[in-house]
Design a protein around this nucleic acid. Sequence first.
DNA 1: AGAGAAGCGTACGAAACCGTACGACTTCAA
DNA 2: TTGAAGTCGTACGGTTTCGTACGCTTCTCT
Lengths: 238, 238
Amino acid sequence: MSEASPVNRLLRLLPPQDLQRVWSKLKRITLVPKQVLLEQDAKVGNAFFIESGTVSMLQTMDDGARIEVGLVGPEGFVGIPLLLGEETTAVEGMVQVEGEALQMPAAAFQRLLSELPAFAKLLLRYTGSFHVQVAQTAACNGRHQVEQRLARWLLMTHDRNPGDRFTMTQEFMSTLLGIRRPGVTVAIGALQRAGLVEHSRGAVTVVDRAGLEAASCECYQVVKRRFAWLDPVNAPKS
Amino acid sequence: MSEASPVNRLLRLLPPQDLQRVWSKLKRITLVPKQVLLEQDAKVGNAFFIESGTVSMLQTMDDGARIEVGLVGPEGFVGIPLLLGEETTAVEGMVQVEGEALQMPAAAFQRLLSELPAFAKLLLRYTGSFHVQVAQTAACNGRHQVEQRLARWLLMTHDRNPGDRFTMTQEFMSTLLGIRRPGVTVAIGALQRAGLVEHSRGAVTVVDRAGLEAASCECYQVVKRRFAWLDPVNAPKS
DNA sequence: AGAGAAGCGTACGAAACCGTACGACTTCAA
DNA sequence: TTGAAGTCGTACGGTTTCGTACGCTTCTCT
């Protein structure tokens, strides 16, 4: 890993000299589905800049129920608690779609934050956008229906991953959305009948992206706009 | 306002010399219920350190529906977007319970942030705790029932305000919880029958705080623990 | 090839919550 | 004093979602 050529949007937005310093502390790792990057109520040992794939930020309830409160892909990083000066995290970070990440130990991360103002500023801005995503999810969970929320979730995943087909069981999706598994069957069936997606055992394929956007709630667009400053200029998906 | 003697927890945790510098830029204002401190999608002109009363952070949907995603009282401040380097806010800040705040113009706020590391560090840590509150609300809205959520909300309000009686219509509470107004009537009626609260026209009174905690979901405790570092040592309520 | 596990489709009653409407009571201003 | 507006209790049918169960298909392992 001698040459600094990240895919991650945050790293790409760093001034070149800063990137070199950051790069020297990064180690490339593979992200395997269901792998836990951030363990709930545990010390945060590393920050992760996502290169490909996606990571779900989850809240776990006392009864063991889980629900996704945010989603991180190559536009962002996992490790906000480190940035904000918290030792432990209340939110779990679990790999949702396989990929790669660049990992940095907490100590190096915090040192670089204090030495490179542009680095800190960038990550803080991302934190602001992510915060909006979580807030919108709170509102969405309270007011919108399963089918809309599923459509939104598929779009968010589609934005962060190449291709249109995602390996993913209904059981897994139901956990992230905080609903019953048969609820996913019904909702995804409705989307398929409308010609927006296709699904088979253990996978979903986005067929009609524009239609999916129409079927989702406004929450998708609201959050997307908040992340627009991170978009590659010449790579609007779809 | 010559002597620096704030009630606000964040300001009280500042080193004395920093507090003096911060204090000189603060102006005391009155908070009137329904007053908007942060307008959605508008520039953030000021930061507000709450001295008394509470402010609700709200998300507004396209159909005009609103729902609360976070709550700020004398333990915190309003203006996280300024801290994170965002120009506009996606979340509205509206006064929920009357009180006072110390207001600081955005420019002064940002200058002090860069000049006083302890100030910035403190506010970042608060941001982390608040972020957990929003994430927990997202999970709570997705999985918990109205009665539990109402109990939780009453407890959060109780924590942040003196006394046990809060002037507040059911209509207003229904907006914050994102439910129908009659839904509040029913839920609050159940809590009253259980002897946990009493309510009359335009007001609710907390009667049995411990009982209310038992009736609320775990979300209350989870968030409270995250804010424990801000608590006055000798003032645990009830 | 066969057995077991995983994943999915479907069904059914129950519960939660919605949208809406209406009447009663209180408060407030004319 | 009287009307109007605000607030609350209650009711009703309808919708969404739940919890659960069952059976089918596909995959995996031996």
